[in-house]
Design a protein around this nucleic acid. Structure first.
Length: 732
DNA sequence: ATTAGTGGTGTTTTT
DNA sequence: CACCACTAAT
């Protein structure tokens, strides 16, 4: 069968397993996505199931999209009936279809974490809880953790005063969410889980439909997600779980790699299939990754190997400062570019987002195009948040969070005092702020301002009833007054552009191949009116806007290690490898924290195909002050022989035309006179071109005069020793 | 009601 | 340093 060609024995076995639950332990770069997609295609092609009966769960929208694309590349059928998505996306879909049974309004909205935090602050304030003594962030974490255990406030056990307090906040928070008709991220899952638990008809409906459930990144599932899967599988359906415990890097948000072990037991998985052949990286890179991860104790055990050669050594650069680190990276990037590597094939990775600043600055000054992933996303920008809040209020007037955000933005004479009065009225009557505003018990100027606001939102509502989605957006933004506001703002142009982009996002959303089309097959969602608006707003929360920048341009890729998971590049720089940064101070408490950091490093290492740089700096500006850092322990955990030190301060031996002055070491500063590079000819670190081997860089040198030889690392041909007298090297 | 300015505080990773 | 929450001044 053409579908199965080129699979290795383990992959083949996984793809063609019988209809029973299975666990695939798939190492980095071992063809995990291929196995997953090929299995789906194989199940369908052999007639074991229709597209209708497949449910595939991923963790990111990107992964879901890629999976769909690859499946449609393999099969001539349309993938319409197939459900492929994230846990959150799938739960959202189920809840929208059965909103009544789930006890939600049709246009229920989704709170992102910032919205959730704002709501918790509001609730705590109304309860007169001192947010200095009880940080709202802590309450947020408490609530989410409880929900991830499947626990409602009434079921949470409180041990002490603090947890008792937090439980009351949880209870009040949930009550407020229900009043407003909004759900947070975790609530999507919990609500869906409860819906299917309680409602036998729906449960049997979905169980009857999804005979095959496939789960990607199984190690990242939390308890609730695991329960959800178990519930959906029931006694008869099979779960095909693919995961890698060594790449579990989301414990901080509840992921439990232990779910893989539970799964093995609960679903009677006889034999775990291991995919250990790596098709991505060259040998040295894999050896480094294997050696590193061996320092972790909690492992299922697995060793990656490759049929490729060992390739280049890893390059380690120790900079004096973060600025010098950036400068080195810049030089190397330029070099790679000159050698023909596309910029989008080079990634700069760091532990935390704040580290991108210095790198961005250097790249910007050098005129190298780059793209930063993560950070603030499109739908999280304040102007977009404001526009969305208007839309949310239009879709669901009970949404107090949205109300508060826009009631006086742009300013329209409704100040803190008026808002307080509205809140009192709402609290007294047990209604939403919107209802309180409509009742309008205030007199004088404040009352008139509020009446005008109510009228504004109502005119938005009236106009939107039957308009197509993009026109709704245009219309609401137009009436909101946001545009004149940002026109007067000093740096408002970018924000105005983004507001325009919002309409484009809506156009894409309702277009033929957009998400609407995929969902509308059931007929429950149209591209017009409030249901479309609600769907779009959900989309905005669930997919905070990954494809904001021009994807087509060839740009250097900057991102955190977390967001690099699942990606691969020709060349990878792992930067800021310093104790305190990576491993990060806040995580290295306890064995588990450190092991997760090490897995993070493992993920970083295994992103590279051919070339891998490790860099760190002795001093670094962080939080406004200079910190002195020592090299990360993770560097030491990689065997010496895999690493080539390219540190300029230690290995700047210079070469004359006649030979080398090798072994020449500079101290901290360049106290010794600098040899004239142009006159002496060759220099360690210099880029050269060889007639046969192509371009490379001089790594080290040996001997003098006629015996002089250089070690050159060629981009494609790998490491070579060349006699200077015979090899016709040309400076690059 | 809005603005500017002050001081205190906390900082990882993200569906 | 960057983001708040709060205060004083307009």
């Amino acid at each position: 069968m053409a579908l199965l060609e080129g699979l290795n024995p383990q992959q083949l076995e996984a793809v063609t397993l019988a209809h029973r639950s299975a666990l695939i332990l798939a190492g980095a770069g071992s063809g995990k996505t291929r196995v997953l997609t090929t299995r789906i295609a194989w199940l369908i092609q052999t007639g074991q199931i229709g597209a209708h009966g497949v449910l595939a769960v991923t963790f990111t929208n990107k992964a879901a999209r890629e999976m769909l694309m690859r499946i449609s590349g393999m099969l001539p059928i349309n993938t319409r009936g197939m459900w492929v998505g994230t846990f959150h996306g799938l739960c959202n879909r189920i809840l929208r279809a059965h909103y009544r049974d789930a006890g939600l309004p049709q246009t229920f909205q989704i709170l992102d974490s910032a919205d959730q935090l704002a709501m918790i602050k509001r609730v705590m304030k109304s309860m007169n809880i001192d947010d200095g003594k009880y940080p709202p962030k802590q309450a947020q974490h408490f609530i989410n953790a409880a929900k991830e255990q499947g626990l409602r406030a009434a079921k949470v056990e409180a041990f002490d005063d603090l947890s008792r307090k937090l439980v009351t906040v949880y209870e009040a928070y949930d009550a407020q969410c229900n009043r407003e008709g909004v759900v947070d991220f975790t609530e999507l899952l919990l609500r869906c889980f409860e819906l299917l638990s309680k409602n036998e008809i729906l449960r049997e409906h979905y169980r009857g439909r999804f005979k095959h459930i496939l789960v990607d990144e199984f190690q990242d599932t939390n308890r609730l997600q695991y329960f959800w899967l178990k519930l959906l599988a029931g006694p008869n359906n099979s779960i095909f779980g693919v995961g890698d415990d060594d790449q579990s890097i989301y414990a901080f948000r509840g992921a439990r790699a232990g779910n893989m072990l539970d799964f093995e037991k609960d679903f009677h998985v006889g034999k775990v299939i291991k995919l250990e052949q790596n098709y991505r990286s060259q040998g040295n890179i894999l050896d480094a990754a294997n050696a590193l991860i061996r320092h972790n104790r909690a492992r299922l055990g697995k060793n990656l190997w490759t049929a490729q050669g060992s390739g280049e050594a890893l390059r380690l650069y120790e900079a004096m400062t973060d600025l010098e680190e950036a400068r080195y990276i810049l030089d190397e990037v330029k070099q790679l570019k000159n050698e023909g590597t596309a910029l989008c094939e080079i990634a700069l990775l760091y532990r935390s987002n704040a580290q991108s600043r210095v790198l961005e600055h250097a790249l910007f000054n050098a005129g190298i195009s780059y793209r930063v992933y993560g950070g603030l996303r499109f739908f999280e920008r304040q102007e977009i948040k404001h526009a969305l809040a208007y839309l949310r209020l239009v879709a669901n007037p009970q949404d107090d969070g949205a109300f508060l955000r826009v009631v006086n933005f742009p300013a329209r004479g409704i100040g803190d005092r008026s808002i307080e009065q509205l809140q009192d009225v709402a609290a007294g009557r047990g209604t939403s702020l919107w209802q309180a505003a409509c009742a309008n018990t205030l007199s004088g100027k404040a009352g008139a301002s509020i009446a005008a606001f109510v009228k504004l939102i109502e005119s938005m509502r009236a106009a939107c009833e039957h308009l197509p989605l993009p026109e709704i957006i245009d219309h609401v933004v137009d009436l909101s007054g946001l545009i004149p506001y940002y026109q007067n703002e000093r740096e408002g142009e970018g924000r105005l552009e983004n507001l325009g982009e919002l309409t484009n996002a809506a156009v894409a959303f309702v277009s033929a191949d957009g998400p609407i089309a995929q969902v509308s097959e059931g007929g429950e969602i149209q591209s017009q009116g409030f249901p479309a608006l609600a769907a779009f707003l959900a989309h905005a929360s669930l997919e905070a806007g990954e494809h904001q920048a021009a994807a087509g341009a060839d740009a250097l890729q900057l991102m955190t290690v977390h967001s690099a998971k699942g990606l691969e590049f020709h060349a990878v720089f792992i930067t800021g490898l310093e104790e305190g940064l990576f491993p990060h101070d806040n995580s290295s408490s306890g064995q588990d924290g450190l092991e997760e950091e090490r897995r993070l490093m493992y993920v970083a290492l295994t992103r590279a195909r051919r070339r891998l740089y490790l860099t760190h700096a002795q001093t670094r500006m962080l939080h406004g002050q200079t910190r002195y850092n020592i090299a990360s322990r993770f560097v030491e955990e990689i065997p010496e022989e895999l690493i080539q030190r390219v540190n300029a301060t230690k290995f700047s031996g210079f070469v004359s035309a006649a030979g080398f002055e090798s072994g020449f070491e500079r101290g901290f500063e360049a106290k010794a006179p600098k040899p004239d590079t142009a006159a002496s000819g060759w220099r360690v670190g210099q880029n050269v071109v060889h007639a046969k081997f192509g371009s490379g860089v001089i790594i080290s040198a040996q001997g003098r005069g006629a015996d002089a030889r250089v070690q050159v690392n060629f981009r494609d041909a790998g490491m070579k020793w060349l006699a200077l007298e015979y090899a016709k090297l040309v400076p690059a």
